[in-house]
Design a protein around this nucleic acid. Structure first.
Lengths: 239, 239
DNA sequence: GCAAACGGTGCCATTTATTGGCACCGAATG
DNA sequence: CATTCGGTGCCAATAAATGGCACCGTTTGC
């Protein structure tokens, strides 16, 4: 078995969350204990946080944070990469925007073709700008990582997205919308969506979104989102 | 020489656009003719379109389109990737900072080990924050891409860096400093360096730096840069 | 026609990297 | 104290990469 495939296999097993012993991994993968230990060492070098416990009942365990992230890696890794490239573009201090595209090209080469398609599609939906300095961003919450998979699915398959939104006054409402774009004005993130009930575009701050769920049924159609690429006319949007 | 490094080297040479002979490549790279031929075959498998001509005056040539698309990582491009990850971290809206690390791990997997080391080392020097809204950034210039290679070398090899700096009043001075860190407060970039002449830290706006050159000689030592990770006390630094 | 300069392939000995087995250390557990 | 873990150092076995060689087909220029 190829070294790279083996590493992937180990990560996949560790992702299950249970404590795994080196010998167990070795058996399951079909390699020796020694090799697995070398692999673990290599994975740690690569940035995987793998905890280990000695003694009876001990073993290896992927750090929950690392596990959480890598669990979604297959689905969300594309998103993560997009975001880093997009953030890069957002830096705006040319010529670095151009370098971001180089980064993207490099990334694309490492992904299977179908993911490249996904990546490009998501990139189309992503708009990055800068918040005007006068914006008040003191009440920024955190964005739950758990939101992403649902959003990604909704964007890629053009399915309606249902979620709970807490507005400025703290009032919670349930929405079902057609996700059209993602607007990043660091440190704030917005979902720009078409609200069929109200027949208009609405923007939602991601840190106020919770419990997202993809709604099955017919795909919605892409609409012309009322802003162009870099320029964002939503200067009053933070409210 | 590592197989991956060799492939990169071959692509780099071919990207120059000229016709290259197998023997010429072999000499330049320091491998045998046979090995280069195997590499070419492997690169073709990887999707590189490499034309070949037999006979006198013949040789290998990278398809122009392929050359454009397959921009491989050069030194500066590593920097580009770092920046994208750092910019990502700068977004600060967790959990995306964590996702950036995933992106980084993904990128690292595709890089040869020595570049991973470089990448990490550079990442250590990179601090990203946000400019306080009250800063005046109206006079932002552009940062020349040509600056990067010199900076990268200086950072990696801990060599002194000489450059020309234009201060607020437009007065140009020549400096020779020990680069300690890179501070990014979008859209501004600063070099934080130890100035041996003045015996103190100085910060330089990258858009006011020109004609950088690495100075040979003994390596300088890393100093404790007076700011920690995310928090940047240089609130008055834009001046 | 012929020699030389090219790319390209098959083969095999040599060199280098990966792997597995082993002994052994230290920590935790009962 | 024995057992069960992770972890390291070492070395021989094994697998992969490499280089050298002979050789083929094509093109070019004499």
């Amino acid at each position: 078995m190829n070294i790279r495939l083996r590493h992937d296999a180990i990560v996949r097993i560790l992702r299950r969350g249970a404590i795994a012993t080196v010998s167990g991994l070795a058996d399951e993968i079909g390699a020796s204990r020694r090799t697995v230990l070398r692999d673990i060492s290599a994975l740690r070098d690569q940035g995987f946080v793998i905890h280990s416990e000695c003694g009876r009942g001990g073993g290896l365990q992927l750090d929950p944070r690392s596990a959480e992230i890598t669990a979604r890696l297959s689905v969300t890794e594309v998103f993560a990469l997009i975001i880093s490239v997009a953030a890069m573009r957002a830096a705006r201090s040319l010529p670095f925007a151009a370098l971001a595209d180089v980064g993207l090209a490099k990334i694309e080469r490492t992904l299977p073709p179908d993911k490249v398609r996904d990546l490009r599609r998501l990139l189309e939906c992503l708009h990055v700008g800068q918040l005007s300095p006068k914006q008040d961003i003191s009440d920024t919450g955190t964005i739950e990582p758990a939101l992403l998979p649902a959003f990604e699915t909704a964007f890629l398959q053009r399915l309606h997205l249902k979620f709970c939104y807490r507005d400025t006054k703290g009032v919670e409402t349930h929405r079902t919308v057609e996700p059209q774009a993602m607007l990043i004005l660091p440190p704030l993130w917005y979902l720009v969506a078409w609200d069929p009930e109200r027949g208009d575009f609405r923007h939602f701050r991601m840190d106020r979104v919770s419990l997202p769920a993809v709604v099955g049924g017919p795909q919605f159609r892409r609409r012309h989102v009322p802003f162009e690429d870099d320029v964002c006319p939503f200067s009053d949007m933070a409210r």
